[in-house]
Simulated scan of single mutants.
Amino acid sequence: MDTTPLRDAYRALLDAAATVADSGDPSPVPPTGEWNADRILAHIAIVGAGAVTAVSCVATGAIATYDNRLAHDPWTLDRVFTLAGGNTGIRERIRIQGEALCALSGPTLSEAELDTPMPTVLVSHDAALVDGPVPLRDLLAGLAAVELPGHTRQLLALLPARAGTEGGA
């Protein structure tokens, strides 16, 4: 599996997280109904850990499942962020998880393993997006094409608007 899109999506997310962290605003206020940067990053760390687990299970022949509901629990998000060591620690955790996912998913998995269907539950804003089998390949592609870019945009939306930057700087 070509992991370039996944690697690029992790890089863009981490660049956005660093930009927000370096913006001078220690805790940018999110738009109504959205998470702050801490919770976005904790969510990604939990999602990444679940994906590493799923890939590892498939690689060992164990029954693999994927369920992102825990990655939406406010208490768990805050705890993971704190235990990781705050912003710097959670970004490092996400970086390492991205590297691990790319290393484990790249040339080490066969086509049959990548096509392994897993019972999957994906929720967003308290609504089920997926509740059924998803091939591992599609889970990884979804991380690269939807999940990580969506949270990259969410992080960048936390930056203060800069006067005069519309149309190029």
Rank of each mutant, 00 (worst) to 15 (best):
M1N: 03
D2A: 14
D2Y: 04
P5W: 06
P5Q: 04
A9F: 07
T19Q: 09
T19V: 12
V20Y: 07
A21W: 04
P26Q: 14
P28A: 13
V29E: 11
P30L: 08
P31W: 11
E34I: 09
A37F: 13
A37I: 09
A37G: 11
A45T: 07
A45I: 05
G48K: 00
G50D: 05
A51G: 00
V58E: 00
V58R: 01
V58M: 01
A59Y: 01
T60Y: 05
G61T: 09
A62T: 09
A62M: 10
I63C: 03
A64G: 06
Y66T: 13
N68A: 13
L70V: 15
D73W: 12
D78A: 15
L83R: 14
A84N: 10
G85K: 10
G85R: 08
G85V: 12
N87V: 13
T88H: 15
I90M: 09
R93L: 13
I94M: 03
I96D: 00
Q97L: 14
G98P: 04
E99V: 15
L101T: 09
L101V: 13
A103D: 12
S105K: 01
G106F: 06
P107C: 09
P107D: 14
T108W: 04
S110Q: 02
L114G: 02
D115G: 02
T116P: 01
M118L: 15
L122S: 09
S124A: 15
A127Q: 11
P133S: 08
V134Y: 00
L136Y: 04
L139D: 02
L140P: 00
A144N: 05
V146S: 08
L148W: 02
P149I: 11
G150V: 10
T152C: 06
R153I: 08
Q154V: 11
Q154F: 05
L155D: 05
A157E: 12
L159A: 07
P160F: 07
G168A: 13
A169G: 06
